[in-house]
Design a binder for these strands. Sequence first.
DNA 1: CCAATATTCACCCATAAGGTTGAATATTGG
DNA 2: CCAATATTCAACCTTATGGGTGAATATTGG
Lengths: 114, 114
Amino acid sequence: MQAARLDDTMLALADPTRRAIIARLEAGEARVTDLAAPFAMSLNSVSKHIKLLERADLVRRRKVGREHFLSFNPAPLDAAARWIEEKRAFWSSRLDALEQALLEDDAKQKRKRK
Amino acid sequence: MQAARLDDTMLALADPTRRAIIARLEAGEARVTDLAAPFAMSLNSVSKHIKLLERADLVRRRKVGREHFLSFNPAPLDAAARWIEEKRAFWSSRLDALEQALLEDDAKQKRKRK
DNA sequence: CCAATATTCACCCATAAGGTTGAATATTGG
DNA sequence: CCAATATTCAACCTTATGGGTGAATATTGG
């Protein structure tokens, strides 16, 4: 349960392979080999992607003997979602204000014409 | 109004300088020079960050003579927010289910004891 | 026309990402 | 013990980031 900066979270999500890995983990824990299987890519490359996901704390590792079981940890998504929603909220309210202004102008025009 | 893949959007958001630039644009349009001012960094570096933001279609450029006015375009955030919320929804419902199962177990235990 | 202003372009540099292959390590099954 | 399995480690390559500098370009104000 550590920090994991927004930088790492966003960067981790910026790659389709890593997003696919996360999607795959919705079906439950998986080993490195399982995760690598669908990709036309060496096991090692997938292992590196997993490391990046771990750095972002989006993936947790549970070692049982020689097998490493990976699971998804959604916690870091909160901060990312919060940042994005803040911007979206600000700009949707700004658009609302613009719309409002246009409506008022319209009303003013109507009054004038009347 | 072009595509701008999730990759570019996420990558653009993965850097604190670029997030600060976006935050600054909430105050309205700004020139490259204005955006660069707060940073202990060359104008050129900021110009590059802006280019990355443009690639992600998060920033739009309006040229007036020698001045380039930049503005924020929130549209690409929709897809990013959607992806994140999908994962969050899935996992929060999964946690809910777990909680539910625990509660049911608890109830079962009570019944037994009774 | 000319100097100042606003930006980009063209390089240069260091580091990281994303991929490869081959060897090392750890653990299991027989 | 030994072979097979599951992973990582260590190099290496290519390309992209993130930063810098200096020159080129475009436009404006006198």
